[in-house]
Amino acid sequence: MRRSGRNSLLALGDKYRIYILLVVVFTFMSLFAPKFFALQNMTSVLNAIAMNATVAIGFTVVMICGQLDLSIGSVITFAGVLTMGLQPVLGFAGAIAVAVLGGAFVGLVNGLLVAKAKINSFIVTLGTMTLLQGSIYQFSGGNSISVSTDQAFAISDFLGKSLVPLVTPRVLIAILLVAMVELFMRRTRSGRNFFLVGGNRSTAWLAGINTDRFLIAAFVLSGVTAAIGGIVSVLVSTAATLNLGENSLMYVISATIIGGTAMSGGKGGVLRSVVAILSLEMLYTGIILFGLGNEVKIFFAGIILAYVVLYEAYAVYRHEKTLGQRPELMKELAARTAATRDRKAGRP
């Protein structure tokens, strides 16, 4: 089919929309928001996204597999509470190991129930989410857990101090994880198999891919990255609050979808989700810098998510409506009938 220049430009814009959005938000806020374009603000923006960027890695992979993981928010808090709660007994290394394993275990349960018991992932993770919320309160007794030893403060200082301008170790951890998973997804055969599994599960199975194993792996990865996000975050603040992961679910879902990962699976990328998170955080920071409150932020976050879901759904709807239609043939036909009519009427 012949494409007009305008259409291909639109398609290109759609493909790179997340990078365009980043540039637009950055430019707008730099020009208009007070104190936005400053080294200190940029560092705090990067620090702020470190947790959600880490969490988005696994979530995106799950979504590429065509599934949904609603339990990430509770896993973040769960891992944070485990780290701080077990630290007096096991020391930091042991507590962190247990927390990561805990995240992996939740992911494993999710994955097994989705892949083997064939239950809808939304339902499974809604269940584990509620179960985890209960366990968090059970374990912590309903209070936030803080550790105020010299060692804890030393770790917190180390993670929060800039290595080079803009980049603190907590940001570096996120960057390394994102780079690793992004390269794995793009450059290795196993990584690309995730896209196949998400795009069409039966075709992937017929092609000899162990689809169950990839589904389970995706959920385990999601559990692990959510746990790491939570752990790093509580290590920085030296306290595990019980609402740590509360807003992450909406944040990460919005960012992943805005980043262009298809809800039906088979399309997307980890890096794109993280760029979307960066754009959203810049937008929200700008909103706060303009002097608007947290409720405006929540409102905007919801509107953005709703808009993107609607946009994606509408694109599919349009595509299905016009499937098989050939506009240029219709135009030719119209021109021809007009010409015949003119000839019959005896006009030149």
């Binding site: 584990t128 179960l131 919320q133 209960g134 366990s135 309160y137 059970q138 309903g142």
Partner: peptide
């Protein structure tokens, strides 16, 4: 909160 756990 433990009831949440049981319900889940």
């Amino acid at each position: 909160f433990s009831q949440d756990m049981v319900r889940g």
